[in-house]
Design a protein around this nucleic acid. Structure first.
Lengths: 212, 212
DNA sequence: GCCGCGATGTATCGGACCGATACATCGCAC
DNA sequence: GTGCGATGTATCGGTCCGATACATCGCGGC
């Protein structure tokens, strides 16, 4: 997963490790905590050994330009190679079981802007299926094994079940949007048609989550 | 985390590995997928080496004969020891940073029935603080770095933000319940009467399953 | 009778990832 | 001039996962 994320980020710009971690945190902040350097640096080395990225020490020697406010010393800048871009495309397109778990799906989703529509649809539907299965499992436990469990455990399951139902609804909206060829997130009023006031339109354009 | 979960489950009954995994999955299904045997068995061995649990092979008493050519590998039943119970209590009470991440909090919460009220409150508040921080981070990204990110990434952040806000509200309810000395799953009971102080966990009798 | 087959059951191995830690430079406040 | 927090690179031990292997048991089908 880290490999995919690094390859994806380096396609936007070459970066050094520290920066990569910050961008990673910003992009994936919704699904996981900060990436550990204990994962980042070994992965970078692995990617470099495989030829997906190249390492270049920053040398501003010839430039007499004014150094920016931020000093640059001893940083190692990583750049993605052509093979790396190929690898990224391959990782994005091929969906294994890990594509649909929480982290895997999150990383894939974060790079949907670089993913073709058919793959996006496939991943969204696979994720929905997986969440539906988890939801059924929780319903089973809450229904069949409720008396074996204490009140706190049950409350935990209920909260998890609620989150599942919510995510399925979210995925449904995204899938509908994909099928209709629209971008995610509600197109703001004025861009599409003259709907001055959108409360709950029949078209799944407004992807705001509303609570029942 | 696995250590805590195993110790907690074995306090309810002695179990063998396969059973342990099933119970673990039932109890923690809301927060994580099934436990891998690649984690379970090494952890069991570690716990046994430390003396927290004991292992007893299920061998038929009539097997004083020469072991058959196909040496039957019986089930291995694990039982928690007195030291193990002590260890569990210690792990439950002491809260490190990992107590408040998704998995750690889930495991602690799942054993709230074996946790005293002060600790429950401390953990709930710690978790709330952590989620609030994550929420602020997401709001920052959505506010300040929105133009740097594509629509899909933004949608992911919004979904994450929504989940954070929802969890904070959930935690608020649980905290309020704890302070009032009630069991979880806030009902609107007429039973506000005599609250006998109980050092043991609140009687989890009211386990209605209705969605608010 | 017996054969496959899914559930039960124990176990290992390589790899991904994390948390703690170490170390070094820079800008800035005091 | 010194402390301190941000920047920056890097390693190590440990936890946990996914794949894999192998053995037994009950049961339905032929």
């Amino acid at each position: 997963m880290l490999e995919l994320a690094i390859l994806g980020l380096l396609q936007e710009a070459p970066m050094h490790g520290y920066e990569l971690r910050k961008e990673l945190t910003a992009k994936l902040g919704a699904i996981r905590a900060a990436i550990s350097y204990g994962s980042l640096y070994p992965t970078l080395r692995r990617l470099q050994a495989a030829g997906w990225i190249t390492e270049a020490a920053e040398t501003p020697a010839t430039a007499e330009e004014v150094p920016a406010l931020t000093s640059r010393r001893g940083r190692v800048v990583y750049t993605i190679t052509a093979e790396g871009k190929e690898r990224f495309a391959q990782l994005i397109a091929q969906a294994g079981p890990e594509t649909y778990d929480d982290t895997g799906f999150g990383v894939h989703f974060a790079f949907f802007a670089r993913t073709d529509q058919a793959t996006r649809l496939r991943i969204l539907e696979g994720r929905r299926r997986k969440i539906e299965e988890r939801r059924e499992g929780l319903r089973d436990v809450l229904g069949r094994a409720a008396e074996r469990l204490d009140a706190y455990t049950l409350e935990l399951q209920r909260h998890g079940l609620d989150a599942c139902e919510r995510e399925v609804r979210w995925l449904e909206e995204l899938i509908a949007n994909e099928r209709s060829g629209r971008a995610p997130t509600a197109p703001k009023p004025g861009t599409t048609g003259g709907r001055g006031d959108n409360d709950s339109p029949p078209t799944p354009g407004t992807s705001r989550t509303e609570r029942p």
